[in-house]
């Protein structure tokens, strides 16, 4: 009987070999990207199984949150609803994507322990699964964003490509952070708690619920806040504002440095991750 499938596993053969093996994991995960998608879809479906409106609970609870915080904060900060509601809606939704990928990233490998310990599935498959799951969540929340933008008169179709570019930057950066969180959490069980605290802290330090203008445009809190740049790259274009060039260079640099670091950590720990679990 003939077959085309072949599996070769060897011991360490030097750093270059390890890099190659890590790259092969990434490649294999991309070749079977459909599997990550199926797993993500299954996660969403099973989370809302048996509920009447299903995944639209995501939309509903987000809508409630946006309405509540939008109305309250607009009054507290004495800004017009017209400016503030779209701002806060996008802030909450897009920050939710970042914190979702990073926080759930902590569970990525721990949750997949069963599969990792008896199949040769690529590790990255599970990272993409977490990313896709949050992308599906985002898709449900986009309904709110679109509705709010149209209602308050911010909708400009020509702004979409720039916002999409920002969204790509957001996902690329959140993905490496999620992967790093996944490896670290598998090894050290304190990490998920730390990550959750940090993300919560970051949410309040980042202009999600408050307007950056109140702080002064070039405050260090904004200039060096990666979350602000990720948010602003998507939010500003949709609000009809320009994205500062500094934001793009910051995000690009962060993506390169972040992925290099993550990939280096993955190369070193790849063989061990399954034993951490």
């Amino acid at each position: 009987m003939d077959t085309a499938t072949h599996m070769l596993r060897t011991g360490r053969r030097g750093p270059l070999f390890e890099v190659n093996m890590a790259l092969r994991d990434v490649r294999a995960s991309l070749q079977r990207i459909g599997l990550a998608w199926s797993l993500a879809k299954h996660d969403i479906v099973s989370r809302y199984r048996g509920s009447i409106i299903g995944p639209f609970w995501i939309t509903l609870s987000m809508g409630l949150m946006v309405a509540g915080i939008g109305l309250l904060n607009a009054r507290l900060f004495q800004v017009s609803l017209h400016d503030f509601i779209p701002f806060v809606a996008m802030g909450i939704v897009f920050f939710g994507v970042i914190s979702g990928i990073v926080n759930e990233g902590c569970d990525t490998f721990v949750q997949a322990a069963g599969m990792l310990s008896q199949t040769s599935l690529p590790m990255f498959t599970f990272v993409w699964r977490t990313v896709f799951r949050n992308a599906i969540n985002l898709a449900h929340n986009l309904v709110i964003i679109v509705a709010v933008l149209i209602y308050f008169g911010y909708w400009r179709t020509m702004n979409l490509p720039v916002a999409a570019l920002g969204l790509v930057f957001l996902f690329v950066n959140a993905a490496w952070a999620g992967m790093l969180a996944a490896i670290a959490s598998a090894r050290f069980r304190d990490i998920p708690q730390i990550v959750i605290s940090v993300m919560q802290f970051a949410m309040f330090m980042t202009p999600v619920f408050w307007l950056p203008a109140r702080l002064g445009a070039n405050h260090a809190f904004l200039l060096f806040n990666p979350f602000f740049h990720m948010l602003d790259a998507v939010r500003a274009p949709l609000m009809g504002q320009e994205v500062a060039p500094h934001t793009y260079s910051f995000l690009a640099l962060m993506a390169v440095v972040g992925w290099a670091l993550t990939f280096a950590v993955f190369t070193r720990t790849r063989r061990r991750i399954v034993h951490y679990l």
């Binding site: 011991g11 199949t119 040769s120 063989r271 034993h275």
Partner: peptide, 26 residues
């Protein structure tokens, strides 16, 4: 099954592998 990497040596398998180590998998 390809889940554990060798520390030394080599595993070379031709053919599609089905591992029934834990029936509850997935």
């Amino acid at each position: 099954s390809g889940a554990y990497e060798p520390d030394e040596g080599m595993i070379d398998i031709h053919g599609h592998i089905a591992a029934l180590l834990d029936l509850g998998l997935g």
